[in-house]
């Protein structure tokens, strides 16, 4: 009965803890490991990264958009088109925060060993701003304007139009004025540098980057 009492107390502690979102049983970790390129130890190391990010502003064990922004840009505020899209894609349940499982699943696409198709698909969804299933001219224009403003570069309307027209001439094979997933895939496969940001070398050595996982590990791999 002592075991039952201890187990009950531990459960109660987890359920009432602000960090209950961080509680993942060994079975949860194995399930995540079986459906991603990560080992159980790597997922535990990612939990250390997740903990760090989830307490940047509000210490509630969840990653909010401001925390994502602070982690990536070192500043918590300001409008940013790309950050909004990255956040939306990570927040798969669309409930306004990124939970640990969403974090691991989204980051798994960035693993050096993740399938190229997953990277191509993620980038397509990232650039399909209005989520219509197509990347349209207006969306490409909006993203180019955002990157130019981020870099402080001025470009004439004619130059901007020329870049957009060249882009569609390169990719829009059926000439319907929008890029579908097949057209995007064909172009991305031929131009792998476009997907450079879709691979994070750090993820291959995540247990070295966050060695503190060892203090909470469930498995010795």
């Amino acid at each position: 009965w002592i075991e039952v009492l201890i187990f009950g107390l531990a459960r109660c502690f987890v359920q009432n803890s602000p960090y209950k979102h961080l509680y993942y049983s060994y079975d949860d970790l194995v399930r995540l490991s079986n459906t991603t390129p990560f080992t159980v130890n790597e997922i535990e190391a990612l939990r250390e990264l997740y903990k760090k990010l989830s307490r940047l502003i509000i210490d509630d064990g969840l990653i909010h958009k401001e925390e994502l922004q602070l982690a990536l840009f070192r500043m918590p505020a300001g409008e940013n088109l790309f950050l909004d899209r990255v956040f939306d894609l990570f927040d798969e349940k669309k409930n306004g925060f990124i939970d640990f499982e969403e974090f691991v699943r989204a980051l798994s696409v960035f693993h050096p060993h993740a399938p190229l198709d997953d990277k191509i698909d993620f980038a397509f969804r990232l650039y399909d701003l209005r989520q219509t299933g197509y990347i349209e001219k207006e969306e490409v224009k909006q993203m180019v304007v955002a990157i130019l403003s981020e870099s402080g570069i001025q470009l004439s309307d004619e130059s901007l139009e020329a870049i957009i027209n060249k882009t569609f001439a390169d990719i829009d094979a059926d000439k319907d004025g929008k890029i579908n997933k097949e057209e995007w895939k064909a172009f991305a496969v031929g131009h792998p540098t476009l997907l450079k940001n879709m691979t994070l070398a750090y993820l291959k050595d995540i247990t070295t980057v966050f060695p503190s996982f060892i203090f909470n590990t469930e498995v010795d791999e």
Binding site: I163, I164, K166, L200
Partner: peptide, 29 residues
Amino acid sequence: KSPDSPTLINAFQLIGMSSCLDLSGFFEK
């Protein structure tokens, strides 16, 4: 197209340069 005309960049090559799409910031101290 004249041989002197500059080669235009594809918009996605530009967009891919955005620092906002570089998630390595997660791992930097």
